[in-house]
Each structure stands twice: as C-alpha cells, then as structure tokens.
Write a protein that binds this DNA or RNA. Structure first.
Lengths: 223, 223
DNA sequence: CGCAATCTTGATGATTATCAAATAATGTGG
DNA sequence: CCACATTATTTGATAATCATCAAGATTGCG
C-alpha cells in the first residue's frame, strides 16, 4: 500500500479501471525500450533497481537516474531530430508497474488526489534533476563519485558493525555513464578513497563506508 | 490569455481567489531569493528573461535554465545540508507572476484542468532537465555551446536577411555557468565559430547564424 | 569622450580521457 | 567444488581538453 496510485484512489478506485495498470518483471540486465508509450504513461518501480538510460545516435550514453522502490519515472515524449533514445534496464531483478493515467483519472473516484500526487512527484523529480545538473556542471570527478556513493548508500545501503554497507550491482561503466566520466576514472578514484580510508572495498561490488560524514564532506567540496 | 492558469480557470475562476497570483517586475540584473516560498508556489515568466541560479556555499554557481515568456518554474523545496541556494535573476527587464496553487485549486472551478496543466508542464521540465544532463555529461564544450546558441536562437531569435539573429543579453560568465564551463572557454569557442563561418559576431552580444543546420550539426556531434 | 566592466587572447597547468596491458572477479560445465 | 574461460576492473603511460592566471583589447555607459 505504499503505491501512490493506490493511496490516491484506494483499491476500489483502481479496480474500476481494468487494464490501466500492468505489472512487469525484469531479470537483471533486461532492457525495456521506452519509445512508443502513450504520453500519459508513468512507470513505478515496485522493487529492485532500474537504470533510466539515454543513448544518442552516435552511441554516447547517459544514465539519468538509478530508480529504486517507489520511484516514479516518465518515459520521454517521442524523440525529435537530434535527441536521444530512452531505455530502462534492470540492474537487479525488478518489478515495475506501467500505469496509464488518463483512463484512471477519467473513471476512478479520487482522481484529483492522484493528479496532485503525480504533480508533486514530478516536481521532486525536477529538483533531483537540478541537483544532478549542478553535480555534472560544477563538481570534480572525486566529488561526483562521493556524492553518488552517498546517495546510493542512503537509498539502498544498510548499517553494519563495520560501517555502512553498500552493494554496487551496476558495473563501473554505468556509474561512469551516470556521472559523465569514464570507467577508468571511477576505478582510480575508488582506489584513492580506499587508500585514504574513506571506503573499504573487499570486492569491486561491495563498498563499506566507515564514516558517512567523511564521505559527505568530500561530496560537498571539502578540500 | 496564453497564461496556463487563466486558460485552465478562465477569468472568473481566477478572480474567485484574490491574492493567489501576484505580479512582479524586475529590472535587468535584479535578483530574487527563491528560498522561503510556500511549497505550492509556481513562477511564471510573462515576458523578458530570467535565470534560475543555484549557488553552493563555496560559491560555485550553476544556471539551471534561462526562462523566457510562458515558462514556468518551481522554487526548490527548502534547502537541506549540502544543498545549494536558489536565485532568480532578470537578464532583461522581466515581468513574472508568483502563483499560489493551493488556494486556487481549492476555491476555483476548473481546478482539475489546472492541475493537469501544471503536471504536464512539470513533466516537460523533467524532459528538458534530462536533455541538459546529457549535454553536461556527454558533450564537448563546443557541442554544448552550439546547443545553447541553437536553443536560444529558436526561443528568442528572429530571422533576418543576413541569417538568424540572436541577442545574448547575458554575460559570458553566465553562459559558462549554464554549460559547466569557464567564460574564457566560451570566448575561445565563439572565436572558433566565427573563424569557421558558423556564426558572425559583430558585437559580443549579437550572434548571427547564417545556417542553423550547420550549427545544429555541431551541437549533435558532427566531427 | 573617458572610465569601468567585459571580453578576448596567450601561456601554462590540472584534470580527465584514451589506449594498452595486467590483474582480479565471476560464472560454467565437468 | 574446482579449473578454466570470460568478463570486469585496475593500473600505467600518454594525450586531449579545459581551467587558471595574466595581460591586452573592446564595449558600453555615464
């Protein structure tokens, strides 16, 4: 019942619109082409993790976001000349809902609450994107990676006696695509962090952060 | 009557909520601190041009967008640790509306249309931000500047017999802040463009683009 | 017309990308 | 469960891009 659609409409409202919500499972690595969806479509991650990827014709790639449980996403309106193609790729086994808003807002009671919820979510998405823009435009590679690890730790990590533990299920290349860097640079900075004690890295996919505050300081520009 | 609020509610709807919309004029260079606005606030540029700026504690600056007639903007929710401060600064003499959505959506008829309009606008803002992220993450300085000039030309430029003409009312420094670069780099690339005939630059603030397609090719990665 | 601000250019340096191996991790079938 | 093949990561050397610092040259404004 954490689904914003359910919360807005109640179960009764939802069942009034059969077929407006469909649920999809994706294995790790599975990819969904986001072109061709109706403009009223919203994705919602139920569990797992999804990368929202933008790929240009010449193969350049950017990961706009790593979406986790509860996150909403809006497939791009159909692409124009010079724009890029959008994909969603499962990082972990993932379940997501594909929701058509129009039929729901027409036939279900509580549609205004739903719309308000979606509007709020979209505004939050704008804020997040603006933070990310600032990061890309005005932070060093080190700061960007620190910020990324911190964000992911808060969202998917968990505390242990050795420190905050974070599983990096995605490859270095995808982190690089998210941060506008190259995988080699990610690797070098990871090594720096390891050597300076900011993180421990028993395996490339497991990050242990003894002191979140220290990482946070780096992310926000401590010299 | 191009105002989305008016379109959604009609004049009758608007007058039902006195004080929900206030109109402000700003001279070029005037600055508005965007902190402390209620979370239901929306800005709307009536005419002129507004920069949406994000400034971190250590002085780093990013211009998230140049907003022109008809554009909406949502002031950031109150800042948390490590985040940045938001300002709006007039590039040209500008009029803007500051709108409180909650009272309108409560007391005016047609509130659902309004909400739908705002939701759509927020979604478009997300798309724009994602394009900008791609630009910042995966394009060269040359491509970024070409993309910027192209975008601004489409929005504020006008065709003449010598080509498409574009007034750059903002300083190089602000363009740099928008594109994640330094003013000197903007200057150098402008000179490159000038020498290669992509643009003419009679004055630093006046750009003439003889062939938009040529500029577009550069923006989208032509070698 | 002159001054202050802005823009341009040049020289140099830092950061990050690119290319090329070497090393480590992961998964697979025996 | 282990050896091997495959894929990912790390490391090193070098190059490209862009930032920084420091003068000049323009602009635009009073």
């Amino acid at each position: 019942m954490t689904c914003p659609i359910r919360q807005a409409l109640g179960n009764a409202g939802l069942t009034a619109c059969p077929g407006a919500v469909s649920r999809i499972s994706a294995r790790a690595g599975e990819k969904l082409d986001a072109t061709g969806f109706a403009p009223d479509t919203v994705f919602r991650v139920v569990n797992g993790m999804l990368m929202q990827e933008h790929v240009s014709d010449d193969g350049r790639r950017h990961v706009a976001a790593f979406k986790t449980s509860g996150d909403l996403s809006w497939p791009l309106p159909s692409r124009e000349a010079g724009e890029f193609r959008e994909f969603y790729e499962a990082v972990n086994p993932t379940e997501l809902c594909i929701i058509s808003i129009d039929p729901i807002s027409r036939c279900a009671p509580g549609a205004d609450t739903l719309l308000k919820t979606l509007y709020t979510a979209a505004r939050i998405e704008v804020s997040r994107a603006q933070e990310q823009m600032f990061l890309l435009a005005r932070s060093s590679a080190t700061e960007r990676l620190a910020g990324f690890l911190l964000d992911l730790a808060k969202r998917t990590g968990h505390g242990t006696k050795r420190g905050f533990e974070l599983k990096l299920s995605m490859r270095r290349e995808r982190i690089a695509d998210h941060l506008g860097m190259q995988p080699e640079t990610i690797s070098r900075i990871m090594t720096q962090f390891k050597k300076s004690g900011i993180i421990r890295l028993p395996r490339p996919s497991l990050v242990i952060i003894p002191d979140l505050k220290a990482l946070s300081n780096i992310a926000f520009g401590a010299p």
